[in-house]
Design a protein around this nucleic acid. Structure first.
Lengths: 242, 242
DNA sequence: CGGAACATTGATAGAGCTCAAGGAACGTGG
DNA sequence: CCACGTTCCTTGAGCTCTATCAATGTTCCG
C-alpha cells in the first residue's frame, strides 16, 4: 500500500517546510509509487542513466564513489527525506552510487516529468536547486574536513554531523541515535584506514566522549566533540521536502 | 564600457551552449553591470549575504573555506564562465569565500531577481540547477581524491583537471596553460603541506611529466598523469552559461 | 640596498597505513 | 546442539608517507 503524500510521515517533522495544497497535489501526481529494498542492495549505480528519481522515506543508506582500483569514498549518508538522483535528473547520469544500509522505503518519481516540474512549479524547482546547493555546501565542508583535519577531528565532525541530522529527523533518544554503518563505512567516509578508524574510535571512547556499539551511537559530551571538530557546526535548517 | 551579452566573448566558446534570442534578452535585463577587481581582492566572504551574484568573465580566482584556527581549504578554482554566489542566491548566505587571484572582470546580477528567473525562465532555472549539480559532482570527485589518494595522485588529478578546464575555455596553447596560483594555494587545494606540495611537484618534474614555472603549467605527458590520477577523468561537457 | 613574497631543500618526528593475528557474534548445516 | 564459516571488531608491530622545523635561494620592488 502506497503512502499518500498528504499523509507522508515526513511532513510532520518540523525540519521540513510545509507544502500548500497545490504543491501537494502536484507532488502526488509526480509520485509514481514506492520501492522497498533490502539492506545491502544498490539503489542507483554510478554511471547509470536511471529513469527514476527517489526520495528516501525510511531507512538509511550511503552515497559513494568507487575508484578504478576498488578504493571507495563515501560521499554522504542517506537519511529519510533525502532526494536521490538529482544528478541523473539534470546531468543524465549518476556520478556516485547509492546503496541501502538498512532496509529502505523510497518514493519513486519519474525523471521525464522533471522538466514539467520546472515549467509549472517554479517553487518546487527552486526547492530542487536549494537541495543541490545544500549538498554542495555539505560537500565543501566535508572536503575541508578531509583536507585539513586529523583523524580525531574528522571523526568528531562526522559523528556530530550525523547525530545532528538524526536529531532534526526525530531519530534521537536522549543522547543516542541509530548508526547502522560498519566501521569500514566510517573509514571510507573519513578517508582513514579501517584500523586507524577503529583506534581513533577507541580514543574517543576512552575519553568518555562517545560510545558506538550495536548500531547505537551515543554522544556523552557533544560540546567537547564540537570543540574537537574545529569547524563551526551549524544547526540543520528547515528545508523543502521533495 | 559594459559588455553586451550578445557580444559576450564567452558565448563564442564551444563549451557553452548557445542562448536563443529570448533568453539572451532576459539575461541582458538580468545583468546589472560589470565589476573589475584587482588581484588578491575578495569577491564574496563566507557568511556574507550578498545582494549580488556574479559570473566570471575574465581572470581567475579561488573559492575557499577557512577554519576557525586559520587553516584553509580551497574548494575550487574559479575560471571564466563560472557562476559565483549561487549559495547566497538560494540559501541566503555564502558558505565559502571567493577571491581573485588575477585581476578579474565579473558580470553582476541582482539577487532579488533570481526568483523572477525561476518563474519566467524555466530553462534558465534548469541551467542553474544543472550548474549546482555539476559543482556537486566536482566536489564529490575532489572528496574522493583527498580521501583516497596519495600526494602524487592528488597532484596529478588536480593539475589535469585544471588543464582540461582551461582547454575547454580555449586557454591552452599546445601543452601549456596559465596557472596563476601559488604553491600554497595548490597545497590548500590538495590537502597537503606547502613543503610536501613542493617536493611532490619536484618529483613530477623530474619524471618529465610536467613543469610549472612563471605562472605557466606545461603537461609533457598527460597520459601518464591520467594514469597516475587513478580516477577516470571525464571530458568537460558543454554547459549553460549564466 | 633592504625587505617581502615565494620557492626550494634537508633533517627529524609523528600520524596513519599495512600486515598479521585473534576475538566476538551470528547463521547454517550436519 | 555443536562445528564451521563468515563478517565485523580489536589489537600489536613495523614501516611509510607526510608534517613540521629550519635554513637558504630567488625574484621583484620600493
Amino acid at each position: 500500500m502506497v503512502t499518500n503524500c498528504a499523509n507522508c510521515p515526513l511532513r510532520k517533522i518540523d525540519v521540513f517546510k510545509d507544502l500548500d495544497r497545490d504543491e501537494l497535489a502536484y507532488m502526488q501526481r509526480f509520485k509514481h509509487g514506492e520501492l522497498k529494498i533490502d539492506s545491502q542492495s544498490t539503489v542507483l549505480m554510478e554511471g547509470s542513466n536511471s529513469p527514476q528519481l527517489f526520495t528516501a522515506l525510511k531507512g538509511m543508506g550511503l552515497r559513494y564513489k568507487t575508484l578504478e582500483d576498488g578504493r571507495r569514498q563515501v560521499v554522504n549518508f542517506v537519511l529519510p527525506g533525502d532526494f536521490i538522483g538529482l544528478q541523473a535528473g539534470v546531468m543524465g547520469e549518476m556520478k556516485h552510487s547509492v546503496e541501502a544500509t538498512t532496509p529502505m522505503v523510497l518514493c519513486v518519481f519519474d525523471r521525464s516529468e522533471l522538466w514539467s516540474l520546472f515549467k509549472t512549479q517554479p517553487e518546487r524547482a527552486f526547492d530542487l536547486t536549494w537541495a543541490a546547493a545544500i549538498e554542495e555546501h555539505f560537500l565543501g565542508e566535508a572536503l575541508a574536513t578531509l583536507g585539513q583535519m586529523d583523524a580525531i577531528e574528522r571523526m568528531s565532525w562526522g559523528l556530530i554531523r550525523f547525530f545532528m541530522r538524526c536529531e532534526s529527523l526525530g531519530l534521537v533518544d536522549g543522547d543516542r541515535c541509530p548508526f547502522p554503518y560498519r566501521q569500514q563505512d566510517l573509514a571510507d567516509t573519513l578517508g582513514l584506514s579501517l584500523v586507524h578508524t577503529n583506534k581513533t574510535l577507541m580514543k574517543l571512547r576512552q575519553r568518555q566522549l562517545l560510545s558506538l556499539e550495536a548500531g547505537i551511537l551515543t554522544l556523552h559530551d557533544p560540546e567537547a566533540l564540537k570543540e574537537l571538530a574545529a569547524l563551526e557546526i551549524e544547526p540543520v535548517v528547515q528545508r523543502p521536502l521533495i
